[in-house]
Every structure is written in structure tokens, then in C-alpha cells.
């Protein structure tokens, strides 16, 4: 069975290590915050200038001056810090953020990612995505393995305008966990009940399957 959005988020959260500073993109990546293992601490970075993003506020705590990068009202966690956009992107571009998790339209075997622009549709902008993929030490892309029509999103070469080149090393989809290296996707784990054949069929770029591929533990 393909994973649900929540299950992808659960698998993403397993990647975090105690003491990691993590930036989570909008959508599935944000959900990963709900599944951080109880025995570790991670600190969430929000690129509008907040390190130590807390939960959404209770009604009586709502403050228009406290928002996240998705422009939602939030709180600061204990031990948080708040700073300017330049400071925020200095920590991102300077490689100080351990993990960034973001969605994508396409990823290719070179580790390039397209996530911000579909020609012919209204272009809203890249926000901080280009800075995040250029700067974070580890980047995880979360997405469905194929689009609604069954077309693979894991390609030999991205067809859409790029967000970054040669920067993606790990992809977690509804079907599999893959590593990107040596111009190929290396299959590392498969979703429970999903066959290697199905993953092969839905991966357009070169897929390497080495030895036994374990099922994910969700």
C-alpha cells in the first residue's frame, strides 16, 4: 500500500537526530513535526526569522507579530530566538541548518530538483526554497512517486525549471526511500506491501536495486 501523507511524514521524522536544527517546508514536511521521536529534541527553523518554532497558539495566545513562514500564527518554543530575514538566511545559506525537508514536482538522478514553477501556470515565486536547497547540509524531498496520471516524478533529467542543481541526496515518497548518487536512484526501503516491480515501473530515471530491500517501519 502506498503511504498516506501522515505516514510519509512519520517516515521523514525517523531521519532526525537528537540536536538537529530542521527547516520544514509547507505541506507534508510540516506534518513531520508531529512525529518527532519522543526521546530526541529537534529545533524547528522558520525562515521568516524564528528558530524554535512551537505549537499553534491557543486562542488567547494569538499574536499577529508571531507567525511562521507559511504566514500562520505560531508560538515560540522555550529556548527560541527571533532574528531578521538576513540572519535567518545566513544560517540557511551558511550551512548551519542540519536538515531541510521540502516537497517537489520532479527530482532527477543528478540530484536536481524542480519545485517552484510550472510554465503556463501562474508563477507565485520560489520563496526561500532556492536558498534552502543551496544551503542545508541534508535535504530530504517528500513527494508522491508519480503524479495523478501515473507519470513518474523521479526522472533522468528534470523537465521543469529548476530550484537547485546537484543538491538532493534523499527522497521519501509514498512508495519508497531512495538515495541519489552516481547518477542513479538507489532503492533503500519500500513501503509496506509495495513490490520492487511497482517502484521500478514508477521510476523513470535509472533505479539501482541492491540486495534485499527492507520494508519501512512506520
Amino acid at each position: 500500500m502506498a503511504l498516506s501523507r501522515e505516514q510519509i511524514a512519520m517516515r521523514v521524522a525517523q531521519e532526525f537526530k537528537d540536536g538537529d536544527y530542521v527547516n520544514l517546508g509547507i505541506g507534508i514536511p510540516t506534518l513531520a513535526a508531529n512525529y518527532v521521536p519522543k526521546d530526541i529534541e529537534v529545533m524547528l527553523q522558520s525562515e521568516n526569522g524564528l528558530l524554535g518554532m512551537g505549537a499553534y497558539p491557543h486562542e488567547d495566545e494569538v499574536d499577529a507579530d508571531m507567525i511562521n513562514a507559511g504566514k500562520e500564527t505560531v508560538t515560540a518554543s522555550k529556548g527560541a530566538s527571533i532574528f531578521s530575514s538576513a540572519e535567518s538566511f545566513a544560517m540557511i545559506r551558511g550551512g548551519h541548518v542540519d536538515f531541510t525537508v521540502l516537497g517537489a514536482f520532479e527530482v532527477d538522478v543528478n540530484g536536481s530538483i524542480a519545485s517552484w514553477m510550472i510554465p503556463g501556470k501562474l508563477i507565485k515565486g520560489m520563496g526561500g526554497a532556492m536558498d534552502l536547497v543551496a544551503g542545508a547540509k541534508n535535504i530530504i524531498v517528500t513527494m508522491t512517486h508519480a503524479d495523478k496520471r501515473g507519470n513518474s516524478k523521479l526522472l533522468s533529467a528534470c523537465t521543469l525549471p529548476l530550484t537547485g542543481v546537484n543538491c538532493i541526496t534523499r527522497i521519501i515518497t509514498d512508495l519508497a526511500v531512495l538515495e541519489v548518487k552516481d547518477k542513479a536512484f538507489y532503492l533503500r526501503e519500500r513501503a509496506p506491501g509495495v513490490s520492487i516491480e511497482e517502484i521500478e515501473e514508477k521510476t523513470a530515471g535509472k533505479l539501482v536495486v541492491e540486495g534485499d530491500i527492507p520494508e519501512m517501519t512506520i
Partner: peptide, 25 residues
């Protein structure tokens, strides 16, 4: 890009006419 935008303003105010960044390459 958001970080480039912030840095463009910071550089402008600090008398730095241009800078190099990996963002957007």
C-alpha cells in the same frame, strides 16, 4: 529568492555593490 532578497538589501545598505551566492545557480 528570499535569502538573496534579504542579502541584496543588506548589501545595499552596507555599501557592498554585489555578492556571490550558490542560491539560484
Amino acid at each position: 529568492p528570499q535569502g538573496t532578497l534579504a542579502e541584496k538589501m543588506r548589501a545595499g545598505g552596507a555599501g557592498i555593490p554585489a555578492f556571490f551566492t550558490a542560491t539560484g545557480y
